[in-house]
Design a protein around this nucleic acid. Structure first.
Length: 335
DNA sequence: TAAATTTGACCTCG
DNA sequence: CGAGGTCAAATTTA
């Protein structure tokens, strides 16, 4: 499964990212120059989106350029970083899972929102196990796709809180979603059911005195986040703005310019990353990807599209785009 | 009552 | 043999 990507492919990817970044800048300038005639709130919203887009490009470029180095929030790779690194570099996975695409995402729990993107990535997961990991402070939760039996979807993920930084959640994804649950992704950012799962277990274990309280606090924080995000964007954005952004995304991540992108059933893994990014302007440590993730992304030139970045090409209709940025949707505000 | 979670037992692999 | 991963019965939740 572990394939090397050529320098040409890497350069091409970098060029595409650079181009996309430049386009985003141009869009930013265009929006800013035209915003004088529109409402100030609209321009601030646009700026917010553009900032996030540019930030995403910056991170992607940084990760590519430092391909040989793990990227970590605080410069001190977590235990999971090391395990994952070893896993890819030195220890081939078992035959069972050798063919399964695998990548890791690290998601920082937004301090202000309590939102854990890792636990709400738009897919429906069912927990099937939990294990105490040797040397780890926090147990590892094992999740599989809810539609495993119905649709034979073999996607799984492991969720574990970082030892060194308990605000960091590491999500280890395995396998692609072959199920069709795009509509479920309407629940992105708003599912409060899954949020406490990991926390509950961990707080029961580590803070037996106040587990329930912590859960409620975090749920409330999510609700606040949802409400604030909706307030900000609901009142500020216009349809045209959305369409502009949407068109830009389509251009920037067009399959025509990304030869290794192929249609896939996976569509919202990307937004494992997004909730915190959109919930906080803090770009430090909100989302972390390991080298192995990039390796995984780039090592699957034709078929693996689970990678967060690559799934951009799947937003081929407005509905999906609204799913990604659901701040304007009724579902978003009502849940 | 169906679906989801919990958790101890069991399996696999290094 | 031990650690990690999965199974499945019991329990909880909606």
């Amino acid at each position: 499964m572990e394939l090397e990507y050529t320098n040409g492919e890497q350069n091409g990817l970098i060029n595409e990212l650079i181009q996309g970044k430049e386009l985003a800048k141009q869009l930013c300038n265009t929006l800013l120059s035209s915003s004088s005639s529109s409402s100030p709130s609209s321009s601030s919203s646009n700026e917010f989106l553009i900032e996030k887009i540019l930030s995403t490009y910056e991170k992607a470029l940084t990760m590519l350029n430092s391909h040989s180095n793990l990227i970590s929030t605080n410069g001190s790779p977590s235990r999971s970083d090391l395990i994952h690194d070893d896993e890819f570099k030195h220890k081939p996975p078992s035959n069972k899972r050798k063919t399964m695409p695998k990548w890791t995402e690290k998601v920082k729990v937004c301090s202000q929102t309590g939102l854990e993107g890792s636990l709400d990535d738009g897919y429906c997961w069912r927990k099937y196990g939990q294990k105490d990991i040797l040397g780890a402070k926090f147990p590892r939760g094992y999740y599989r796709c809810t539609y495993r039996n119905v649709q034979g979807c073999l996607a799984t993920k492991q969720v574990q809180k970082s030892d060194e930084d308990p605000t960091m959640i590491e999500v280890n994804y395995r396998g692609r979603h072959t199920c069709t649950q795009s509509k479920n992704s309407n629940k992105v950012f708003s599912s409060k059911k899954k949020l406490p799962l990991l926390e509950k277990n961990q707080f029961h274990k580590l803070q037996n005195n106040q587990p329930q309280k912590q859960e409620k606090i975090e749920q409330t924080q999510v609700e606040i986040f949802n409400f604030e995000a909706k307030l900000e964007l609901d009142t500020n954005t216009t349809t045209k703005d959305d369409d502009d952004i949407f068109s830009w995304f389509l251009e920037s991540f067009s399959p025509d310019t990304e030869p290794f992108i192929s249609p896939s059933t996976s569509e919202s893994d990307l937004f494992c990353l997004s909730p915190c990014q959109f919930g906080s302007s803090n770009s430090n440590g909100i989302v972390q990807t390991s080298e192995s993730e990039i390796t995984e992304i780039l090592s699957a030139p034709t078929s693996v599209t689970n990678s967060p970045i690559m799934d951009f090409d799947l937003f081929l209709d407005k509905e999906d785009f609204d799913t990604v940025f659901p701040f304007n949707t009724p579902e978003y505000s009502s849940s």
